[in-house]
Amino acid sequence: MTVEIQYTIGDEVKDVNDVRGGLNIFVNGRRVVQYQEEDPSQWRHSWEPKFAGEYLHTVFSGLVKRAISLSKGDVKIYQENVVKFGPTVSRLILEPLSDSDLRLAHRVTGGSVQEPPLPVSESARGYVVDRCEFSQAVSDAAHDYLADVRAFPLEWGEDLLEEFETALDELDKSLVDCANNTPSLQSRH
């Protein structure tokens, strides 16, 4: 199964800490983040529901951090790893199922005044993809995101970009040996 990550930036960026936008993951061309009700008038941001999230840099940072752990084999099989799409109720579940298989699922949590939009059953159940291919897709999208943000006339947040670049370098290094760094049933620590 092919994995691709797409994102959108909602406004001109002046502060890295406030990059507004969302992302979505595609498996064989199907969006992982999909909802039963996708009427655009029901959503707060113009990029929703096609893209999830509000503060894109925070989402990307969490995704890169999880991809590092996955590509290093530092997570246990059946351990659910969560990437939050910002202050929204959407969550991405990353669960290693074997040495190479990873389940990607989209879930929502409660907590808002109104009932959250529910994902379609395929999204909630998830898709099984190659763990290293997923981590590579994260790296590819993160490099594109970094180049896009650097192209804006930034006034603040250069230190956050440097931290992000360091994490991205760590991800790229871990990808070299990803297939040999397999998750186990036991904790490695």
Score class of each variant (00 low, 15 high):
92 L>T: 08
105 A>C: 04
104 L>W: 06
86 G>E: 05
133 E>Q: 14
75 V>H: 00
47 W>I: 08
153 P>H: 08
12 E>N: 13
58 T>I: 12
85 F>P: 01
31 R>Q: 13
85 F>K: 03
156 W>K: 15
82 V>E: 04
127 Y>L: 10
93 I>N: 12
35 Y>N: 06
56 L>Q: 09
106 H>D: 02
172 D>I: 04
176 V>M: 06
39 D>H: 11
164 F>M: 09
34 Q>D: 15
9 I>C: 04
85 F>D: 02
21 G>F: 09
179 A>K: 14
99 D>R: 11
185 L>P: 02
77 I>A: 09
107 R>Q: 13
97 L>K: 15
97 L>D: 07
84 K>P: 00
176 V>R: 12
58 T>G: 14
151 A>C: 07
115 E>K: 15
91 R>C: 12
160 L>C: 04
33 V>R: 05
98 S>I: 07
79 Q>C: 04
73 G>R: 05
132 C>H: 03
4 E>D: 15
125 R>E: 11
176 V>A: 12
67 A>M: 08
157 G>P: 02
62 G>V: 01
85 F>A: 07
70 L>D: 03
19 V>Q: 05
165 E>N: 09
68 I>T: 03
187 S>P: 01
126 G>Y: 09
21 G>Q: 12
173 K>T: 06
84 K>G: 00
117 P>L: 08
88 T>P: 08
27 V>P: 10
84 K>Q: 07
11 D>W: 13
8 T>L: 06
101 D>T: 10
29 G>Y: 05
151 A>R: 13
82 V>Q: 01
167 A>I: 00
22 G>N: 07
63 L>W: 00
186 Q>G: 10
10 G>A: 15
3 V>C: 14
55 Y>K: 07
124 A>S: 13
125 R>G: 05
153 P>A: 06
20 R>I: 14
52 A>G: 10
130 D>H: 09
182 T>G: 01
169 D>H: 10
118 L>T: 08
89 V>D: 05
167 A>D: 08
47 W>C: 11
154 L>F: 10
132 C>V: 02
14 K>T: 15
65 K>Q: 12
121 S>C: 00
82 V>I: 15
151 A>E: 13
185 L>C: 07
187 S>C: 02
61 S>C: 02
2 T>R: 14
